[in-house]
Amino acid sequence: MFGYIVIHKSELKIKDFEAYNAFYCGLCKTLKKRHGISGQATLNYDLTMVVLLLTGLYEPEISWGKTRCLAHPLGNHTTAVNVFSAYCADMNVLLADEKLKDDVADEKKLSAPLSHLILNRKARKVRALYPEKAAVITASLQELAAAEERGETNLDLVSGCFGKVLATVCCYKDDVWQEELNRFGFFLGKFIYLLDAYDDLSHDLKKGCYNPLIPLKDHEDFEERVYRILEMMMSEAARAFEILPIVTYSEILRNILYGGVWLKYFAKREKDQKTDDD
């Protein structure tokens, strides 16, 4: 379910793109420092967005630095690190660990048990740091697994489980912005879950796997319905975002929320249409 919260690069100003990458590199650096190489492997763009969101809202002090990188050996890379890099690094490890737990249970990935062993130790430390959040995340994902197991068709119910997870991640602390951050994370989480289901639909149909969109598939206006549902989720998330008094990095965040999140959706539509044409 990661990989949907990305920038629409061609619409972003260069200085914004550089800032975005700096936070991404900063997150990577923080993951390595706090959780070692196995932590670093959990790096993704999705939680980079959360770093930017919380940075824009709370405007903490940022440490700018430079680093070399094995993956990008040419030249130095600017890094931006702050308190939310550490927070998102921790959340990242927690989410990755939950995912691995799921993989081990499903026996899907052969490498899962070993990876899980390594990451689990790191995740345990994170759980001790954020016991309430970890409890909500674990319980929500368990609820989701159970719902999928029984073939739940209520889209709000299944997507809402993941919504709760992302809401918990986005709501850094209980303060005046708790409501908006929770709502933002909740509906963005629902969007991600349903877009992921849409992405996997043909595969799941073929393999007889669970997919909450299967019951809708045979409606003649299926594509339209799915698009409206996804748009409804993003509109709620975006509305919550616009209420937050974020000024710094707001254009990067808007680029993501109004543009970037749709890239994979449109890519899939294009691909499906090409397959239909062939």
């Binding site: 190489i37 196995s38 094995l70 990008h72 995912k99 990876s115």
Partner: peptide, 22 residues
């Protein structure tokens, strides 16, 4: 490309970056 590069140097921790399969 970034992901591929990251995975090459990380200890097979699995494809978390950009992975459609979460």
């Amino acid at each position: 490309l970034l992901t591929l590069a990251c995975n090459l140097c990380c200890c097979g921790g699995g494809n978390y970056c950009c992975g459609r399969n979460y």
